[in-house]
Design a protein around this nucleic acid. Structure first.
Lengths: 202, 202, 202, 202
DNA sequence: AATGAATGAGAATTCATTCAT
DNA sequence: AATGAATGAATTCTCATTCAT
């Protein structure tokens, strides 16, 4: 079924080229016309690949998540120490490069959009599972650290994982408002050190 | 003589009645017509109180901030211990009651909207100063704790303050997605204890 | 009936203050609000003096005509020679001072407005009678010149009068477009001399 | 492939069908809805051919001028004598047939509109150049007559040309008000003869 | 008599979507 | 499969007019 593969690939291409527009103007302020102009195709053709304007969000949500996972793998692939991994995750996860910033804005855009359509949309569950996956990875890291004796056994790994994930998202949010005066590195390092010295066995 | 109307008070009344709509549908998806229907007035009357649709956001941003400050004062008014104050702030600041949840959604809505209109809007500076004020209050609390010997002198109060503020906002964001399964109390307590034991003098 | 006199005077005051607005923005683009703001009274009060927005035009048409007549009398009051009077009329009638320019624009505005409402308005007859009066005065001047032997008996005074009146209005129209490069004096003088002496070689 | 449409041709078609509406109601009183209803198309389609309501005026101004030029060429194409040409121009240029009357009203409408928007619109220059072109043609005719010995050398051709053009516009204006009682032919003939021979007794 | 608060019809414009080609 | 012409519902905003005070 080569045709089907082509269709799916083109869906992705279109979505990928749409993402900067979404970050710049927001979903509601990005007319189909602008998307198809950006892609270089006719307005009507959009509907050969997506059932509606909304449909493209399914592809984009997937890409945002894919980018994030790929990013995590790239960042932490060749590090062994679980605590170092954790720190890299917190620090770099809070530091917005161009793509990351774009995706963060899209993420909030989708989030906002989803909250409005509560009950009748499929994105909230996706967000939930994305957060869940991220949280589980962090839990694993903490537990690994615990099993290696780097972190106290009685620490509530799940709760700390949630806290770190929340912290990262909060940092990203604030970075976009406060940037570039916001010293992300310093804040992350301070928090991490404070936490570290508390959860380390004495 | 015509009916005497307190214009500023009516601006506030309209804005207050508009806030639930903004939380439910988002600013871009709330037509003037819906606002005026909610308030119970004619469509044209809106423009006797606001210069444009956008203008109502000035009032609403102010209300969101005012609500928050009032809420903080109410929560922490009769507590003395700075560390307890801090914990209350983090925990209750992360716990969404009905009004707080509504305001949080509006806040994210405006945040998203402002990021898109970067360069030509007046809300980002307001957000910035709001974050700044919050951060300064937290810094004061930490320094008070330091001067009382409850927290190590060498702790970077400013950085930790930023971290806590970011954490709170991240928690609110996640609460909206994960609620009601999300155990905010447990996460906050775990984080706080971890940090406490780290920043406490040994 | 002193009250009635007051009302009429205030109608005139309002109309007089409205005229610059009409010249600047046009009748259709001058909201009642702008008129009453200019006059310094409440919006509703307008309707105590005029039955509708349109009603103020009756007053204004009258003022435009009154101004014109007064202007003619002032210009030609102390001149005796009918041909000189005629020349003064043509030249100065084609030369727009500030008030005259304003009234000319209003005149065209009303003219345009009247043409649109053909059949259901009372202004066209007023314009007609105004033109008729002007034309009659010019006819009288030409006939006076004829009786004094300054102009050939066989000249069609009525037709020439119409021509001069039309010429004056055309000049005003063009002045507004071409001004200030348009040398009104030179054009009027050339035409007048040509009419007097003829342009054919003798 | 979608229906192929000659966009420029359709712009002209729409503009041509809009002209009677403009003559009847004026530009400001002709909603897009009335235009599209007249043309027989959907309201939104208008904006596929014009960037704004104002944009259609560009097409219409062009048509008004084009009509006029075509009309002049038709009238004077096969006449040789420059003075006869001039007389035809003055007389027929002052005589309104249906199309001409319509265009004249539109011309005044746009004139009024342009005067109000002075400084921010592109029509005044167009009017200027149109008048300039007309004037230059008349100057050429007068000079031709001079070189053929039909008109005195010392006559100021440029000034007389301006005068005739102004006269024509003034006549059109008055025709619209006075018609049908207005004997345009008689007025033009009288003026023209007077100019030729002079009105002073010899 | 004077006011300005309130109204809603109506304006220009945008845009997701359909469909003939 | 691809296109863009066509549509009309929906949006923001204006304004003449009314009317309670």
């Amino acid at each position: 079924m080569p045709k089907v593969v082509d269709k799916e690939q083109k869906r992705i291409d279109i979505a990928r080229k749409t993402m900067p527009l979404l970050a710049k103007y927001g979903f509601e302020n990005t007319p189909i016309r602008r998307i198809t102009a950006e892609v270089g195709m006719g307005k009507g053709t959009f509907y050969d690949y997506f059932t509606s304007k909304e449909d493209i969000l399914n592809e984009i949500v997937r890409l945002v998540f894919t980018d994030w996972i790929e990013w995590v793998i790239r960042k932490m692939g060749n590090i062994d120490d679980p605590l170092e991994k954790l720190f890299i995750l917190v620090r770099d996860g809070s530091t917005l490069d161009a793509t990351f910033e774009q995706n963060m804005i899209i993420y909030v855009d989708l989030w906002r959009w989803s909250v409005s359509h509560k009950g009748s949309n499929e994105f909230i569950p996706k967000f939930r599972s994305y957060l869940e996956n991220g949280r589980n990875s962090v839990i694993d890291l903490i537990k690994e650290a615990q099993s290696k004796g780097l972190v106290k056994k009685e620490i509530d790994a799940a709760a700390i994982a949630s806290a770190l994930i929340a912290f990262i998202d909060g940092m990203c949010l604030h970075s976009l408002i406060l940037k570039p005066e916001f010293d992300v590195e310093r804040v992350c390092r301070s928090l991490f050190e404070s936490i570290l010295k508390g959860i380390r066995p004495t």
